[in-house]
């Protein structure tokens, strides 16, 4: 095994070889890539643009799967109350969910990690301020935060992203700080200090790689929870605009149909969401193992 690693120095190839040791991870990678592609290419591959109000007709609403519209179009997965083709709505919803979750996640990860590392390394007053900020933030229910943002700025995709990032940064910050403090006391960091390496170098090249494993666990969970949280906000009447539903909003809309026998309205978006999250996690699991030097034999 280790022979292979040393022989190949092209990082991408090495990455692929290592990743592909887990068949499930390959499945995760392929399906995540496929889903991202679907999301990016949504306007091309979706049978209908569900955001274009002139293309949808509420008179075609709540049609069961495989119905055929007056214009001859087949609704493979049925339609929702507004007459949106569920398949198209799911494809566009995927796009919206990815956009929101990835943007919010990236924002939160960068902000949280930076603050967490700084807190762990600087200690003292900065540490206190950052951690108390994290506490305030985490004690602030996401819903209330979102409602306040909404009140001041209005409903929309950008506001939802900001709200989710504000909700999530503290998780990264806490975790990074916790892990970094434990690492900081280890011999190699002490050695670096003795070598008088600049602080930022110790932070970036030594502490950061070592806090990555727990960070990836959190990130995979947080990415999923960003999508779910957005769904929950929609469920509570916040979140994305009604006419541009994400997967979460589609499921939330389906909440009203749970008892009415029109199960497809929330079922298919639910399945789509499950596939998305499971794919991300299969991949993330493997990435986590790979990034963890302690798991290498």
């Amino acid at each position: 095994m280790s022979v292979v690693e040393y022989e190949i120095d092209r990082p991408l190839v090495r990455f692929w070889l290592e990743l592909s040791r887990s068949r499930l991870a390959v499945v995760g990678l392929v399906s995540t890539t496929a889903l991202v592609l679907v999301a990016i290419l949504a306007p091309i591959i979706a049978p209908q643009n569900p955001y274009d109000l002139t293309q949808i007709d509420f008179l075609d609403g709540e049609l069961p799967p495989l119905s055929i519209s007056p214009s001859g179009q087949t609704y493979w997965l049925g339609t929702d109350a507004q007459g949106r083709d569920m398949l198209s709505a799911i494809i566009f919803g995927l796009r919206a969910s990815f956009t929101v979750a990835f943007s919010a996640g990236a924002l939160a990860l960068v902000a949280g990690t930076t603050l967490g590392l700084i807190a762990a390394y600087a200690r003292g007053r900065i540490d206190t301020i950052v951690m108390r900020l994290a506490e305030i933030q985490m004690s602030f229910p996401a819903i209330l935060l979102a409602l306040m943002l909404l009140a001041v700025f209005g409903r929309g995709i950008d506001k939802t992203i900001i709200a989710l990032a504000l909700v999530q940064w503290a998780f990264y910050a806490r975790t990074v700080r916790g892990a970094a403090i434990a690492e900081r006391e280890k011999e190699y960091v002490l050695a670096c200090r003795l070598l008088k390496l600049p602080r930022w170098r110790i932070l970036v090249s030594h502490l950061l790689p070592n806090v990555l494993p727990p960070l990836l666990v959190i990130a995979s969970v947080q990415l999923a929870s960003a999508i779910t949280l957005e769904a929950t906000l929609s469920f509570l009447g916040l979140g994305l605009p009604l006419t541009e539903p994400s997967l979460g909003l589609l499921i939330a809309n389906g909440f009203d149909y749970i008892l009415s026998g029109q199960g497809w309205i929330s079922f298919y978006p639910g399945v789509a969401l499950l596939i998305v999250i499971v794919s991300i996690n299969l991949l993330a699991d493997r990435l986590r193992e790979m990034s963890n030097p302690r798991l290498k034999r």
Binding site: V221, F235, F255, L274, I277
Partner: peptide, 22 residues
């Protein structure tokens, strides 16, 4: 177990709750 745990946080909780009621 791991698959179940992935499922666990993939399900929107409110949907899960409603399904339990159902």
């Amino acid at each position: 177990i791991m698959a179940g745990s992935i499922l666990g946080f993939s399900l929107p909780a409110f949907w899960f709750g409603m399904m339990m009621i159902m």
